[in-house]
């Protein structure tokens, strides 16, 4: 097991190198960062000075070697735009994004899983038909639309029309507490209030996906021999569902939850923008559009490591959830 984890982490290092090369080449192909940042009043001389200062006058491969050299010393370069270390800018905002992604995942699992399993167990009741049709709304409504509607209803209209209705905050992150130097907002009441609307917005799509996945796999599992056997043995329905069915539908749920969690952490841009959430997604998009290469490279290198690690966790979960899945490779 340990060997397996170490091998995966070594692969992660390789993947990070590949990623940095791709981003370097990609940004180079898109355009000139200096054009994006310098005042258009500047003369050619002043432009050259900026290029030189940021090493953009060197050939691509030399720029990359400079980056590698710095990276080996634990320095991923300074943001062109902010003049500060890119890693610092990213880590400053990471807690906010992780918090949001985690909250939305918990919310969608807490709601999606029970509803989905229920719909799978009793596919022909009116309740489960409502659940299934309702879940379609969860993903056919665009994300930004849902977010905006939630703001309009819970932060503007309801408190205006209904006296005494609490006004939910529509933007930003609430009060934070310092835990080991990391600012966390979900430990304060104000922080939770601010978290509510964006987390609900994000969890709608995920929740719908989990409902449908849980139902489909539950229906798949129910006719299986071992469930029939468990029934025949006279096990309680609760035990059959809670242990035998649930255990068998967890692999697809774990896969998709992992994927969705990763996608939210990396790219929750739309929700972050609409709720002015000070997370990394917004930083990434701004940096891409301004061609702020150090930030983009640093960010994606972190994210790709994060994905490798996340998928490692999911793979480890597989073997916990279903002992038949062997992680150690059989062919080497």
């Amino acid at each position: 097991m340990i060997v397996y984890i170490i091998r995966r982490l070594m692969q992660a290092a390789l993947v990070m190198v590949v990623m940095s090369v791709l981003v370097f080449a990609g940004i180079y192909l898109i355009g000139d960062p200096v054009l994006m940042m310098i005042s258009p009043d500047a003369s050619e001389l002043e432009r050259e000075a900026v290029r030189k200062a940021l090493h953009l006058d060197l050939p691509m491969w030399q720029q990359y070697l400079l980056f590698v050299n710095d990276a080996l010393h634990g320095n991923f370069g300074k943001s062109f735009l902010a003049g500060q270390p890119a890693m610092g800018l990213i880590f400053e905002r990471f807690p906010a994004t992780l918090e949001l992604a985690f909250a939305s995942l918990v919310l969608s699992l807490a709601i999606g899983l029970p509803l989905g399993v229920y719909a799978g167990l009793r596919p022909h009741t009116a309740g489960s038909k409502t659940i299934m049709t309702g879940s379609i709304l969860g993903f056919s409504l665009p994300n930004f639309w849902v977010g905006l509607m939630l703001i309009m209803v819970f932060a503007v209209l309801l408190p205006d029309l209904v006296p005494g209705w609490p006004r939910l905050p529509a933007s930003g992150r609430g009060a934070t507490v310092d835990v080991l130097g990391v600012k966390l907002s979900f430990l304060t009441g104000d922080g939770l209030l601010h978290l509510l609307l964006p987390a609900v917005t994000l969890s709608l799509y995920k929740g719908a996906l989990i409902v449908r996945l849980a139902r489909a796999t539950a229906r798949e599992v129910l006719p299986m021999d071992y469930v029939k056997f468990a029934r025949a043995k006279g096990l309680s329905e609760r035990r059959i569902v809670g242990v035998h069915v649930l255990k068998n539908i967890m692999i697809p749920i774990a896969t998709v939850s992992g994927l969705e969690f990763g996608q939210t952490v990396a790219f929750a841009v739309v929700t972050e923008t609409i709720f002015s959430w000070p997370g990394v997604g917004k930083l990434l998009i701004d940096s891409i559009l301004l061609l702020d290469r150090p930030v983009v490279v640093a960010y994606l290198v972190i994210i790709v490591f994060f994905f490798v690690a996340l998928n490692l966790v999911v793979d480890l979960l597989y073997s916990v959830l279903d002992p038949r899945v062997r992680l150690e490779s059989r062919a080497t």
Binding site: V15, I30, V296, V308
Partner: peptide
């Protein structure tokens, strides 16, 4: 499984971490 799995899945990891907007901008230019 084995190396094939590791190789393919690491490509998948890279693709999953690559933002759509960046892909689009690169393709566009």
């Amino acid at each position: 499984g084995g190396r094939t799995d590791a190789f393919l899945m690491r490509i998948v990891d890279i693709m999953l971490s690559f933002p759509a907007i960046l892909v689009a901008l690169i393709l566009l230019s």
